[in-house]
Amino acid sequence: MTALLLRRSASLFLTLLAVSGLIFLVMQVLPGDPAAIMLGTSASADTLAALRQELGLDQPMLVRYLQWIGGLASGDLGTSITYGVPVAGLIGERLAVTLPLAFIAILLSVAIALPLGVLSAAKRNGPVDYIAGFVSQLFIAVPGFWVGLLLALVFAVKLGVMPSGGFPGWQAGFGPALQALVLPAIALALQQAGVLTRVTRSAVAEVLGEDFVRTARAKGLPKRVTLWRHAVRNALVPVVTILGLQFTFLIAGAVLIENVFNLPGLGRLAYQALTQRDLVVMQDVVMFFAGLVILVNFLVDMSYLILDPRLREASR
């Protein structure tokens, strides 16, 4: 088990390294010279050259790459070209919005999908199953940002019970900050909940047909206990797998939703950096997102060992 953990951690590290190289290369081929963008069109060749030197843009590619990942390793992410502040602080600040947003969205989608999927599987072809099927198809079909706009229109503009956008900051108190995240989190969660409901339903339905469920019933366990303790427990591997995969889409969705709701999160930071050609910020934020996705998938891999005892020996 420890050996496995070490091996997986090593592969996690190598993946991160490979991804960093890829991100760096892509940034190099993006059109636009950051120095030229910062100075505008009227700058002279001399000032341009001076700024390029100051930004380190005149150095060979390999040197710049090593400097970048060396900085990443020591927590120095460089300085934003547009904001003129350390990127590390910038990301930390924005994370205080995006992380809770993502967390609430995941929580919400699991809270909707798990009971709905399990009940549909337990009462296949019953009314609950049909309604859940219809609802989840609807959730899947409607894009998150559109749901976001609709929610803002109804709850903020028409009813005025929710803020339509912006973020007061956590210093404004837990309540108001949380309130600002609720609608965007719903917008992010619904599509995921739809997919997760379908996956949960089919996974649980499959397990319900297994022999060991019949054994559990033959012991005299009531249906409800058999369902949760035996069937759902054994259906979790596919559910957690999809949850892990969805994390990538959650990040992509956050970029859109943060812009719809004008939330100062990482996604919005990425979008701003892109439009302003702030290569330093962009490179760091993309790397951060990639690292997060890789980390989540690592955790999903590890969770299999808890969920399925058979894998503990198989993977030794």
């Binding site: 060991f212 019949r214 366990l221 035996h230 427990r233 054994n234």
Partner: peptide, 24 residues
């Protein structure tokens, strides 16, 4: 039936490979 199953009537199944819960 749940009151009787297991308590008054026990059952052994054919397939020992699949009749037990792999995660328990």
């Amino acid at each position: 039936m749940s009151e009787i199953r297991g308590r008054r009537i026990g059952m052994i199944f054919q397939e020992p490979m699949t009749a037990l819960n792999p995660a328990m």
